[in-house]
Design a protein around this nucleic acid. Structure first.
Length: 585
DNA sequence: CCCCCCCC
Protein backbone atom coordinates (compact mmCIF):
# COMPACT_ATOMS: atom_id res chain seq x y z
CA UNK A 1 0.00 0.00 0.00
CA UNK A 2 1.32 3.43 -0.89
CA UNK A 3 2.31 5.48 2.09
CA UNK A 4 0.20 8.61 2.60
CA UNK A 5 1.91 11.74 1.45
CA UNK A 6 2.79 14.17 4.22
CA UNK A 7 1.82 17.81 3.78
CA UNK A 8 5.12 19.25 2.56
CA UNK A 9 5.91 22.65 3.94
CA UNK A 10 3.19 22.70 6.56
CA UNK A 11 5.61 22.85 9.50
CA UNK A 12 7.25 25.85 7.92
CA UNK A 13 3.82 27.38 7.41
CA UNK A 14 2.96 26.92 11.09
CA UNK A 15 6.32 28.29 12.20
CA UNK A 16 5.92 31.41 10.10
CA UNK A 17 2.26 32.02 10.87
CA UNK A 18 1.07 35.07 12.77
CA UNK A 19 -1.41 35.45 15.61
CA UNK A 20 -4.10 36.53 13.21
CA UNK A 21 -3.86 33.15 11.55
CA UNK A 22 -5.33 31.52 14.66
CA UNK A 23 -8.53 29.77 13.75
CA UNK A 24 -7.93 29.98 10.03
CA UNK A 25 -5.80 26.91 9.53
CA UNK A 26 -8.90 25.63 7.89
CA UNK A 27 -7.47 22.87 5.75
CA UNK A 28 -6.26 19.45 6.80
CA UNK A 29 -2.59 18.58 7.21
CA UNK A 30 -1.14 15.08 6.97
CA UNK A 31 1.74 14.76 9.44
CA UNK A 32 3.80 12.12 11.16
CA UNK A 33 4.32 12.01 14.92
CA UNK A 34 7.99 11.53 15.73
CA UNK A 35 7.48 11.31 19.47
CA UNK A 36 4.76 11.61 22.05
CA UNK A 37 5.71 12.54 25.57
CA UNK A 38 3.76 13.26 28.70
CA UNK A 39 4.65 16.69 30.00
CA UNK A 40 5.44 16.55 33.71
CA UNK A 41 3.49 18.68 36.06
CA UNK A 42 5.25 21.84 37.00
CA UNK A 43 6.96 21.60 40.38
CA UNK A 44 4.71 24.41 41.60
CA UNK A 45 1.59 22.66 40.43
CA UNK A 46 -1.25 22.58 42.93
CA UNK A 47 -1.75 19.29 44.71
CA UNK A 48 -5.04 18.81 42.97
CA UNK A 49 -2.99 18.37 39.85
CA UNK A 50 -4.27 19.59 36.50
CA UNK A 51 -4.83 17.03 33.78
CA UNK A 52 -1.78 15.61 32.12
CA UNK A 53 -0.81 16.92 28.73
CA UNK A 54 1.03 15.34 25.85
CA UNK A 55 3.70 16.95 23.74
CA UNK A 56 4.00 15.64 20.22
CA UNK A 57 6.81 16.25 17.78
CA UNK A 58 5.13 16.66 14.40
CA UNK A 59 6.90 16.21 11.07
CA UNK A 60 5.97 16.98 7.50
CA UNK A 61 8.92 14.93 6.26
CA UNK A 62 11.09 18.02 5.80
CA UNK A 63 10.85 19.75 9.16
CA UNK A 64 9.68 18.96 12.64
CA UNK A 65 8.39 21.10 15.50
CA UNK A 66 6.64 20.83 18.84
CA UNK A 67 2.92 20.53 19.23
CA UNK A 68 0.59 19.93 22.15
CA UNK A 69 -2.38 17.63 22.10
CA UNK A 70 -5.61 19.25 23.33
CA UNK A 71 -6.54 17.52 26.57
CA UNK A 72 -9.82 16.24 25.18
CA UNK A 73 -7.71 14.03 22.89
CA UNK A 74 -5.56 12.55 25.70
CA UNK A 75 -7.42 9.29 25.35
CA UNK A 76 -5.84 8.77 21.94
CA UNK A 77 -2.46 8.47 23.64
CA UNK A 78 -3.68 6.60 26.66
CA UNK A 79 -5.29 3.94 24.51
CA UNK A 80 -2.32 3.75 22.16
CA UNK A 81 -4.41 4.90 19.24
CA UNK A 82 -1.60 7.29 18.38
CA UNK A 83 2.03 6.41 18.97
CA UNK A 84 5.48 7.24 17.70
CA UNK A 85 5.47 7.18 13.86
CA UNK A 86 1.70 7.38 13.56
CA UNK A 87 0.64 9.23 10.42
CA UNK A 88 -2.47 11.31 11.00
CA UNK A 89 -4.56 13.93 9.35
CA UNK A 90 -4.77 16.98 11.57
CA UNK A 91 -8.32 18.14 11.06
CA UNK A 92 -8.14 21.14 13.32
CA UNK A 93 -5.31 23.00 14.95
CA UNK A 94 -4.44 26.30 16.42
CA UNK A 95 -1.18 27.93 17.43
CA UNK A 96 0.36 29.72 20.39
CA UNK A 97 2.79 32.53 19.72
CA UNK A 98 5.69 33.56 21.90
CA UNK A 99 8.32 35.64 20.15
CA UNK A 100 9.96 33.47 17.51
CA UNK A 101 8.45 30.32 18.95
CA UNK A 102 5.30 28.71 17.68
CA UNK A 103 3.46 25.97 19.48
CA UNK A 104 0.86 24.08 17.49
CA UNK A 105 -2.11 22.78 19.47
CA UNK A 106 -3.83 19.82 17.87
CA UNK A 107 -7.57 20.03 18.38
CA UNK A 108 -8.84 17.21 16.17
CA UNK A 109 -7.25 14.45 14.16
CA UNK A 110 -7.85 11.15 12.48
CA UNK A 111 -5.30 8.37 12.25
CA UNK A 112 -4.23 7.22 8.79
CA UNK A 113 -1.74 4.50 9.66
CA UNK A 114 1.05 3.40 11.94
CA UNK A 115 4.39 2.96 10.26
CA UNK A 116 7.59 1.43 11.52
CA UNK A 117 9.84 4.26 10.48
CA UNK A 118 10.28 7.95 10.29
CA UNK A 119 9.47 9.34 6.84
CA UNK A 120 12.26 11.36 5.23
CA UNK A 121 14.94 13.08 7.24
CA UNK A 122 13.11 15.97 8.87
CA UNK A 123 15.19 18.78 10.38
CA UNK A 124 14.33 21.03 13.25
CA UNK A 125 12.55 24.11 11.89
CA UNK A 126 14.46 27.40 12.11
CA UNK A 127 13.03 30.23 14.20
CA UNK A 128 10.18 32.16 12.66
CA UNK A 129 11.12 34.92 10.25
CA UNK A 130 9.11 37.35 12.31
CA UNK A 131 9.21 37.22 16.11
CA UNK A 132 5.86 38.33 17.47
CA UNK A 133 7.18 41.15 19.60
CA UNK A 134 9.01 42.83 16.76
CA UNK A 135 7.39 46.12 15.77
CA UNK A 136 7.18 45.07 12.14
CA UNK A 137 5.02 42.12 12.97
CA UNK A 138 2.69 44.01 15.23
CA UNK A 139 2.14 46.39 12.37
CA UNK A 140 1.62 43.57 9.93
CA UNK A 141 -0.73 41.80 12.29
CA UNK A 142 -2.86 44.89 12.70
CA UNK A 143 -3.05 45.50 8.99
CA UNK A 144 -3.95 41.90 8.33
CA UNK A 145 -6.61 41.71 10.95
CA UNK A 146 -8.39 44.85 9.86
CA UNK A 147 -8.44 43.78 6.24
CA UNK A 148 -9.36 40.23 7.20
CA UNK A 149 -7.11 39.06 4.39
CA UNK A 150 -4.86 36.64 6.19
CA UNK A 151 -4.35 33.42 4.29
CA UNK A 152 -2.77 30.47 6.00
CA UNK A 153 -1.60 28.85 2.80
CA UNK A 154 0.45 31.78 1.66
CA UNK A 155 3.84 32.34 3.20
CA UNK A 156 3.49 35.30 5.53
CA UNK A 157 4.29 38.55 3.85
CA UNK A 158 7.01 40.62 5.39
CA UNK A 159 5.58 43.81 6.76
CA UNK A 160 6.12 46.69 4.49
CA UNK A 161 7.47 49.81 6.08
CA UNK A 162 5.19 51.91 3.93
CA UNK A 163 2.04 50.56 5.62
CA UNK A 164 0.24 53.13 7.75
CA UNK A 165 0.86 52.81 11.46
CA UNK A 166 -1.99 50.94 13.14
CA UNK A 167 -3.56 52.55 16.18
CA UNK A 168 -2.24 51.55 19.59
CA UNK A 169 -4.18 48.64 21.01
CA UNK A 170 -4.65 49.60 24.64
CA UNK A 171 -1.82 47.40 25.84
CA UNK A 172 -3.30 44.22 24.45
CA UNK A 173 -0.58 41.67 24.04
CA UNK A 174 0.17 40.14 20.69
CA UNK A 175 -0.11 36.55 21.78
CA UNK A 176 -3.66 35.44 21.12
CA UNK A 177 -4.03 32.15 22.95
CA UNK A 178 -6.67 29.55 22.32
CA UNK A 179 -8.76 29.01 25.44
CA UNK A 180 -7.74 25.36 25.35
CA UNK A 181 -4.12 26.43 25.77
CA UNK A 182 -4.63 28.42 28.98
CA UNK A 183 -3.16 27.10 32.19
CA UNK A 184 -1.89 28.54 35.48
CA UNK A 185 1.64 28.25 34.10
CA UNK A 186 1.03 30.49 31.11
CA UNK A 187 1.67 34.18 31.30
CA UNK A 188 1.27 37.02 28.92
CA UNK A 189 -1.72 35.65 27.11
CA UNK A 190 -4.70 37.29 25.54
CA UNK A 191 -7.79 35.36 24.54
CA UNK A 192 -10.23 36.39 21.87
CA UNK A 193 -13.52 35.02 23.08
CA UNK A 194 -17.23 35.36 22.70
CA UNK A 195 -19.41 35.77 25.77
CA UNK A 196 -22.02 33.07 25.31
CA UNK A 197 -23.65 33.52 28.67
CA UNK A 198 -23.66 36.20 31.37
CA UNK A 199 -25.25 35.66 34.76
CA UNK A 200 -27.17 38.18 36.81
CA UNK A 201 -25.22 39.82 39.61
CA UNK A 202 -25.49 37.50 42.59
CA UNK A 203 -24.95 38.44 46.19
CA UNK A 204 -24.01 36.08 48.96
CA UNK A 205 -23.67 36.17 52.69
CA UNK A 206 -22.23 33.32 54.69
CA UNK A 207 -19.88 32.53 57.56
CA UNK A 208 -16.87 33.62 55.53
CA UNK A 209 -18.34 36.98 54.67
CA UNK A 210 -20.50 38.58 52.04
CA UNK A 211 -20.13 40.02 48.61
CA UNK A 212 -21.34 40.02 45.06
CA UNK A 213 -20.23 38.32 41.89
CA UNK A 214 -21.12 37.49 38.33
CA UNK A 215 -19.86 34.96 35.88
CA UNK A 216 -19.68 34.53 32.14
CA UNK A 217 -19.00 31.66 29.79
CA UNK A 218 -16.30 32.52 27.27
CA UNK A 219 -15.82 30.59 24.08
CA UNK A 220 -13.46 30.45 21.12
CA UNK A 221 -12.82 27.87 18.42
CA UNK A 222 -10.68 25.76 20.74
CA UNK A 223 -13.02 25.52 23.72
CA UNK A 224 -14.79 27.31 26.50
CA UNK A 225 -14.03 28.55 30.00
CA UNK A 226 -15.94 30.16 32.83
CA UNK A 227 -14.92 33.58 34.10
CA UNK A 228 -15.94 35.12 37.42
CA UNK A 229 -15.63 38.62 38.80
CA UNK A 230 -16.12 39.57 42.45
CA UNK A 231 -17.12 42.76 44.25
CA UNK A 232 -15.36 45.86 42.81
CA UNK A 233 -14.61 43.98 39.60
CA UNK A 234 -18.36 43.48 39.16
CA UNK A 235 -18.86 47.25 38.95
CA UNK A 236 -16.21 47.58 36.31
CA UNK A 237 -16.75 44.55 34.11
CA UNK A 238 -20.41 43.62 34.43
CA UNK A 239 -21.62 46.52 32.29
CA UNK A 240 -18.75 46.10 29.85
CA UNK A 241 -19.23 42.41 28.99
CA UNK A 242 -22.32 41.77 26.90
CA UNK A 243 -23.77 38.46 25.93
CA UNK A 244 -23.00 37.55 22.32
CA UNK A 245 -20.11 40.00 21.86
CA UNK A 246 -16.46 39.15 21.30
CA UNK A 247 -13.66 40.52 23.51
CA UNK A 248 -9.92 40.46 23.93
CA UNK A 249 -9.30 39.49 27.54
CA UNK A 250 -5.92 39.43 29.27
CA UNK A 251 -4.37 39.45 32.73
CA UNK A 252 -7.06 37.37 34.38
CA UNK A 253 -6.03 34.68 36.84
CA UNK A 254 -6.29 31.04 35.75
CA UNK A 255 -7.47 28.75 38.55
CA UNK A 256 -8.23 25.09 38.69
CA UNK A 257 -12.00 24.70 38.22
CA UNK A 258 -13.95 22.88 40.86
CA UNK A 259 -15.58 20.48 38.49
CA UNK A 260 -18.42 19.61 40.75
CA UNK A 261 -19.67 23.17 40.62
CA UNK A 262 -19.14 23.90 36.97
CA UNK A 263 -20.83 22.62 33.87
CA UNK A 264 -18.42 24.38 31.57
CA UNK A 265 -16.11 21.99 29.80
CA UNK A 266 -12.72 23.17 31.03
CA UNK A 267 -10.41 22.08 33.82
CA UNK A 268 -9.64 25.69 34.58
CA UNK A 269 -11.59 28.85 35.12
CA UNK A 270 -10.75 32.53 35.01
CA UNK A 271 -10.93 34.94 37.89
CA UNK A 272 -11.22 38.55 36.74
CA UNK A 273 -8.98 40.78 38.84
CA UNK A 274 -8.67 44.53 39.29
CA UNK A 275 -6.01 44.71 36.55
CA UNK A 276 -7.78 42.38 34.11
CA UNK A 277 -8.07 43.96 30.69
CA UNK A 278 -11.19 43.60 28.60
CA UNK A 279 -11.44 45.17 25.18
CA UNK A 280 -14.27 44.62 22.75
CA UNK A 281 -13.20 43.05 19.46
CA UNK A 282 -14.58 44.97 16.50
CA UNK A 283 -13.10 42.73 13.85
CA UNK A 284 -15.54 41.34 11.34
CA UNK A 285 -13.73 38.14 10.37
CA UNK A 286 -12.19 35.23 12.21
CA UNK A 287 -14.63 35.57 15.07
CA UNK A 288 -15.25 32.51 17.22
CA UNK A 289 -18.44 30.60 16.56
CA UNK A 290 -20.14 28.08 18.81
CA UNK A 291 -19.10 24.50 18.05
CA UNK A 292 -21.57 21.71 18.60
CA UNK A 293 -21.38 18.00 19.06
CA UNK A 294 -24.99 17.08 18.51
CA UNK A 295 -26.54 13.95 19.91
CA UNK A 296 -29.54 12.69 17.90
CA UNK A 297 -32.63 12.55 20.11
CA UNK A 298 -32.96 8.77 19.78
CA UNK A 299 -29.46 8.40 21.23
CA UNK A 300 -30.25 10.19 24.48
CA UNK A 301 -31.11 6.90 26.14
CA UNK A 302 -27.49 5.90 25.70
CA UNK A 303 -26.36 8.82 27.86
CA UNK A 304 -26.25 8.80 31.63
CA UNK A 305 -28.62 10.81 33.71
CA UNK A 306 -26.83 14.10 34.48
CA UNK A 307 -24.67 13.88 31.36
CA UNK A 308 -24.19 17.15 29.49
CA UNK A 309 -24.77 17.24 25.75
CA UNK A 310 -25.64 19.33 22.70
CA UNK A 311 -28.86 18.78 20.76
CA UNK A 312 -30.61 20.39 17.83
CA UNK A 313 -34.28 19.99 17.02
CA UNK A 314 -37.44 21.48 15.64
CA UNK A 315 -39.60 23.02 18.35
CA UNK A 316 -42.83 21.09 17.99
CA UNK A 317 -44.58 22.48 21.04
CA UNK A 318 -44.04 25.32 23.49
CA UNK A 319 -45.72 25.32 26.88
CA UNK A 320 -46.95 28.51 28.53
CA UNK A 321 -44.80 30.04 31.23
CA UNK A 322 -45.43 28.46 34.61
CA UNK A 323 -44.06 28.66 38.11
CA UNK A 324 -42.82 25.91 40.39
CA UNK A 325 -41.69 25.95 43.99
CA UNK A 326 -38.27 24.55 44.63
CA UNK A 327 -38.53 22.72 47.91
CA UNK A 328 -34.76 22.54 48.21
CA UNK A 329 -34.26 26.24 47.82
CA UNK A 330 -37.58 27.39 49.13
CA UNK A 331 -38.29 29.80 46.32
CA UNK A 332 -40.44 30.21 43.21
CA UNK A 333 -38.86 29.50 39.85
CA UNK A 334 -40.24 30.19 36.38
CA UNK A 335 -40.15 27.40 33.83
CA UNK A 336 -41.20 26.65 30.28
CA UNK A 337 -41.15 23.31 28.50
CA UNK A 338 -40.26 22.91 24.83
CA UNK A 339 -40.83 19.72 22.86
CA UNK A 340 -38.04 18.99 20.40
CA UNK A 341 -38.18 16.55 17.49
CA UNK A 342 -35.57 15.50 14.96
CA UNK A 343 -34.94 13.14 12.04
CA UNK A 344 -34.43 10.21 14.37
CA UNK A 345 -38.23 10.41 14.80
CA UNK A 346 -37.94 10.92 18.52
CA UNK A 347 -39.27 13.73 20.64
CA UNK A 348 -37.95 14.95 23.95
CA UNK A 349 -38.95 17.59 26.47
CA UNK A 350 -36.50 20.35 27.29
CA UNK A 351 -37.04 22.78 30.17
CA UNK A 352 -36.00 26.41 30.24
CA UNK A 353 -35.69 28.12 33.62
CA UNK A 354 -35.96 31.62 35.05
CA UNK A 355 -35.02 34.46 32.77
CA UNK A 356 -34.66 32.19 29.75
CA UNK A 357 -38.15 30.73 30.28
CA UNK A 358 -39.62 34.18 30.72
CA UNK A 359 -37.91 35.81 27.77
CA UNK A 360 -38.44 32.93 25.35
CA UNK A 361 -40.27 34.52 22.47
CA UNK A 362 -39.92 33.09 19.01
CA UNK A 363 -42.04 34.63 16.27
CA UNK A 364 -42.41 31.53 14.10
CA UNK A 365 -44.21 28.44 15.25
CA UNK A 366 -41.65 25.71 14.56
CA UNK A 367 -38.16 27.21 14.81
CA UNK A 368 -35.04 25.10 14.93
CA UNK A 369 -32.97 25.58 18.04
CA UNK A 370 -29.47 24.35 18.80
CA UNK A 371 -28.70 23.82 22.47
CA UNK A 372 -25.22 23.55 23.91
CA UNK A 373 -24.40 22.09 27.32
CA UNK A 374 -27.84 20.91 28.41
CA UNK A 375 -28.38 18.35 31.14
CA UNK A 376 -29.83 14.89 30.53
CA UNK A 377 -32.56 13.89 32.99
CA UNK A 378 -34.54 10.66 33.28
CA UNK A 379 -38.05 12.04 33.71
CA UNK A 380 -40.34 10.15 31.33
CA UNK A 381 -37.42 8.05 30.17
CA UNK A 382 -35.30 10.95 28.99
CA UNK A 383 -35.67 14.70 29.43
CA UNK A 384 -33.42 17.71 28.99
CA UNK A 385 -32.87 20.76 31.15
CA UNK A 386 -30.97 24.00 30.69
CA UNK A 387 -28.21 25.09 33.04
CA UNK A 388 -27.48 28.76 33.41
CA UNK A 389 -24.28 27.95 31.49
CA UNK A 390 -26.19 26.32 28.63
CA UNK A 391 -26.76 28.26 25.44
CA UNK A 392 -29.45 28.21 22.79
CA UNK A 393 -29.25 29.51 19.23
CA UNK A 394 -32.45 29.98 17.26
CA UNK A 395 -32.18 28.98 13.60
CA UNK A 396 -28.37 28.93 13.69
CA UNK A 397 -26.49 29.39 10.46
CA UNK A 398 -25.14 25.83 10.36
CA UNK A 399 -25.52 22.83 8.09
CA UNK A 400 -27.47 20.71 10.60
CA UNK A 401 -30.06 23.47 10.85
CA UNK A 402 -30.60 23.75 7.09
CA UNK A 403 -30.85 20.01 6.77
CA UNK A 404 -33.34 19.76 9.62
CA UNK A 405 -35.44 22.58 8.17
CA UNK A 406 -35.64 20.83 4.81
CA UNK A 407 -36.57 17.53 6.39
CA UNK A 408 -39.20 18.99 8.69
CA UNK A 409 -40.93 21.12 6.08
CA UNK A 410 -41.10 18.23 3.61
CA UNK A 411 -41.70 15.19 5.76
CA UNK A 412 -41.54 16.06 9.43
CA UNK A 413 -44.79 17.97 9.80
CA UNK A 414 -46.88 14.83 9.31
CA UNK A 415 -44.53 12.57 11.21
CA UNK A 416 -45.43 10.92 14.47
CA UNK A 417 -42.60 10.85 16.97
CA UNK A 418 -41.56 8.28 19.50
CA UNK A 419 -41.17 9.55 23.02
CA UNK A 420 -38.52 8.21 25.35
CA UNK A 421 -40.19 6.00 27.83
CA UNK A 422 -39.42 4.45 31.15
CA UNK A 423 -41.93 1.66 30.61
CA UNK A 424 -40.08 -1.55 31.24
CA UNK A 425 -37.31 0.48 32.79
CA UNK A 426 -35.73 -0.54 35.98
CA UNK A 427 -37.61 -0.73 39.22
CA UNK A 428 -34.25 -1.50 40.74
CA UNK A 429 -33.29 -0.29 44.15
CA UNK A 430 -30.20 1.19 42.52
CA UNK A 431 -32.43 3.28 40.28
CA UNK A 432 -30.22 2.41 37.33
CA UNK A 433 -31.31 2.01 33.78
CA UNK A 434 -29.37 -0.94 32.42
CA UNK A 435 -28.41 1.03 29.33
CA UNK A 436 -26.66 3.70 31.36
CA UNK A 437 -22.95 3.38 31.85
CA UNK A 438 -22.19 3.79 35.54
CA UNK A 439 -18.84 4.28 37.20
CA UNK A 440 -17.66 1.63 39.63
CA UNK A 441 -17.91 4.09 42.46
CA UNK A 442 -21.51 4.97 41.59
CA UNK A 443 -22.40 1.31 41.71
CA UNK A 444 -20.71 0.88 45.06
CA UNK A 445 -22.40 3.97 46.44
CA UNK A 446 -25.75 2.67 45.29
CA UNK A 447 -25.56 -0.38 47.49
CA UNK A 448 -22.69 -2.60 46.53
CA UNK A 449 -22.13 -5.23 49.17
CA UNK A 450 -25.66 -5.45 50.43
CA UNK A 451 -27.96 -6.05 47.55
CA UNK A 452 -31.49 -7.02 48.50
CA UNK A 453 -31.99 -8.56 45.11
CA UNK A 454 -29.87 -8.98 41.98
CA UNK A 455 -29.15 -5.71 40.26
CA UNK A 456 -28.23 -5.06 36.66
CA UNK A 457 -25.95 -2.30 35.54
CA UNK A 458 -23.50 -1.44 32.81
CA UNK A 459 -20.04 -0.16 33.41
CA UNK A 460 -17.00 0.59 31.33
CA UNK A 461 -13.71 -0.36 32.90
CA UNK A 462 -10.28 -1.65 32.04
CA UNK A 463 -9.21 -5.12 33.06
CA UNK A 464 -6.20 -4.79 35.31
CA UNK A 465 -5.71 -8.41 36.21
CA UNK A 466 -7.22 -11.80 35.47
CA UNK A 467 -6.63 -14.58 37.94
CA UNK A 468 -4.33 -16.91 36.10
CA UNK A 469 -5.07 -20.18 37.87
CA UNK A 470 -8.32 -22.05 37.24
CA UNK A 471 -9.36 -19.85 34.35
CA UNK A 472 -11.60 -22.63 33.05
CA UNK A 473 -13.08 -25.96 34.07
CA UNK A 474 -13.80 -29.13 32.07
CA UNK A 475 -17.53 -29.24 31.39
CA UNK A 476 -20.01 -31.67 29.90
CA UNK A 477 -20.26 -31.16 26.11
CA UNK A 478 -24.02 -31.86 26.12
CA UNK A 479 -25.79 -28.61 25.11
CA UNK A 480 -27.05 -26.59 28.11
CA UNK A 481 -25.64 -29.06 30.64
CA UNK A 482 -22.37 -27.29 31.45
CA UNK A 483 -21.78 -29.43 34.49
CA UNK A 484 -18.25 -30.11 35.56
CA UNK A 485 -17.03 -33.52 34.36
CA UNK A 486 -14.45 -35.73 36.06
CA UNK A 487 -11.60 -37.65 34.50
CA UNK A 488 -12.19 -41.36 35.06
CA UNK A 489 -9.33 -43.33 33.52
CA UNK A 490 -9.02 -40.95 30.55
CA UNK A 491 -12.73 -40.74 29.95
CA UNK A 492 -14.72 -37.68 31.08
CA UNK A 493 -17.82 -38.53 33.06
CA UNK A 494 -20.89 -36.32 33.63
CA UNK A 495 -22.87 -37.30 36.72
CA UNK A 496 -25.92 -35.36 35.63
CA UNK A 497 -26.16 -36.86 32.13
CA UNK A 498 -24.85 -40.20 33.33
CA UNK A 499 -22.60 -40.30 30.27
CA UNK A 500 -18.89 -40.38 29.50
CA UNK A 501 -17.09 -38.39 26.81
CA UNK A 502 -13.73 -38.64 25.05
CA UNK A 503 -13.01 -34.97 25.72
CA UNK A 504 -14.62 -32.27 27.84
CA UNK A 505 -15.69 -28.87 26.63
CA UNK A 506 -13.75 -26.36 28.67
CA UNK A 507 -15.72 -23.41 29.94
CA UNK A 508 -14.32 -20.18 31.31
CA UNK A 509 -14.67 -19.21 34.93
CA UNK A 510 -13.19 -15.78 35.26
CA UNK A 511 -12.20 -13.67 38.19
CA UNK A 512 -10.76 -10.33 37.33
CA UNK A 513 -9.87 -6.98 38.79
CA UNK A 514 -11.14 -4.03 36.78
CA UNK A 515 -10.70 -0.30 37.28
CA UNK A 516 -12.06 2.96 35.99
CA UNK A 517 -11.37 6.56 36.99
CA UNK A 518 -13.51 6.19 40.09
CA UNK A 519 -12.17 3.00 41.61
CA UNK A 520 -11.71 -0.71 41.17
CA UNK A 521 -13.70 -3.89 41.70
CA UNK A 522 -13.45 -7.64 41.35
CA UNK A 523 -15.79 -9.10 38.77
CA UNK A 524 -16.72 -12.73 38.30
CA UNK A 525 -17.92 -14.05 34.99
CA UNK A 526 -18.50 -17.32 33.19
CA UNK A 527 -18.15 -18.69 29.72
CA UNK A 528 -19.76 -15.90 27.72
CA UNK A 529 -17.61 -13.39 29.55
CA UNK A 530 -14.38 -15.29 28.95
CA UNK A 531 -15.21 -15.74 25.29
CA UNK A 532 -15.91 -12.03 24.90
CA UNK A 533 -12.76 -11.05 26.74
CA UNK A 534 -10.34 -13.44 25.01
CA UNK A 535 -12.07 -13.67 21.65
CA UNK A 536 -11.51 -17.43 21.51
CA UNK A 537 -13.09 -20.39 23.28
CA UNK A 538 -11.61 -21.87 26.43
CA UNK A 539 -10.77 -25.01 24.43
CA UNK A 540 -8.78 -22.93 21.96
CA UNK A 541 -7.02 -21.04 24.72
CA UNK A 542 -6.02 -24.27 26.44
CA UNK A 543 -4.77 -25.70 23.15
CA UNK A 544 -2.48 -22.73 22.77
CA UNK A 545 -1.26 -23.13 26.30
CA UNK A 546 -0.66 -26.88 25.82
CA UNK A 547 1.59 -26.45 22.80
CA UNK A 548 4.08 -29.34 22.84
CA UNK A 549 7.02 -26.97 23.02
CA UNK A 550 6.18 -25.60 26.41
CA UNK A 551 7.77 -22.21 26.13
CA UNK A 552 6.01 -21.48 22.83
CA UNK A 553 2.67 -22.42 24.30
CA UNK A 554 3.17 -20.33 27.37
CA UNK A 555 4.38 -17.37 25.35
CA UNK A 556 1.41 -17.52 23.01
CA UNK A 557 -0.91 -17.86 25.96
CA UNK A 558 0.63 -14.82 27.59
CA UNK A 559 0.21 -12.86 24.37
CA UNK A 560 -3.50 -13.55 24.32
CA UNK A 561 -3.64 -12.89 27.94
CA UNK A 562 -2.03 -9.50 27.80
CA UNK A 563 -3.19 -8.12 24.51
CA UNK A 564 -6.85 -8.95 24.37
CA UNK A 565 -8.78 -8.09 27.46
CA UNK A 566 -8.78 -4.28 27.66
CA UNK A 567 -10.14 -3.45 24.25
CA UNK A 568 -12.90 -6.00 24.51
CA UNK A 569 -14.28 -4.86 27.79
CA UNK A 570 -14.18 -1.19 26.96
CA UNK A 571 -16.12 -1.72 23.77
CA UNK A 572 -14.11 1.14 22.37
CA UNK A 573 -15.12 2.57 19.06
CA UNK A 574 -18.85 2.28 18.93
CA UNK A 575 -19.50 4.39 22.00
CA UNK A 576 -21.47 1.64 23.67
CA UNK A 577 -19.92 -0.77 26.08
CA UNK A 578 -20.40 -4.30 25.01
CA UNK A 579 -22.93 -5.69 27.34
CA UNK A 580 -21.32 -8.35 29.43
CA UNK A 581 -22.99 -9.80 32.47
CA UNK A 582 -20.87 -9.90 35.57
CA UNK A 583 -21.43 -10.28 39.23
CA UNK A 584 -19.53 -8.00 41.51
CA UNK A 585 -17.98 -9.79 44.40
C1' DC B 1 -14.49 34.67 47.91
C1' DC B 2 -19.86 31.55 44.61
C1' DC B 3 -21.28 26.72 43.70
C1' DC B 4 -28.26 26.75 43.17
C1' DC B 5 -29.73 24.86 38.07
C1' DC B 6 -34.84 23.42 40.56
C1' DC B 7 -41.10 20.87 39.32
C1' DC B 8 -43.92 16.83 37.39
Amino acid sequence: MAQPKLSDGSVKLFQNSLPEDVGVFDREYTLQFLSIKKVGNNANAPISAPPERYRIIISDGQHYMQAMLATQLNELVQENLITKNTIAVIEKLTCNYVQEKRLVIILALRVLEHTADKIGDPQQIEPADQPIDSPAVVKQAQATSTSGASTPQAAPAIASASRPQAPANNGRQGNIFPIEGLSPYQNGWTIKARVTQKSDIKTWSNARGEGKLFNVTLMDDSGEIRGTGFNLVVDELYPKLEEGKVYFISKARVNLAKKKFSNVNNDYELSFERNTEVEECHETTNLPTIKYNFVPLNALEGLNKDAICDVIGVIKETSPLSEITSTKQNRQILKRDLTLVDKSEFSVRLTLWGKQAEQYNVPESNPIIAFKGVKVGDFGGRSLSMFSSSTMQINPDIEECFSLRGWYDNLGTDQTFKAHSNVGGSTSTFGFNRAEIRSLDEIKQAGYGMPEKPETFSTRATIMHIKNDNISYPACPTPNCNKKVVDVNGSWRCEKCNQSFGAPEHRYIMSMAVADYSGQAWLQGFNDVGTAVFGISANELLEIKAHPAHSIGDDAYQVWYISHPPSELQGRGNGNARFIVFCMG
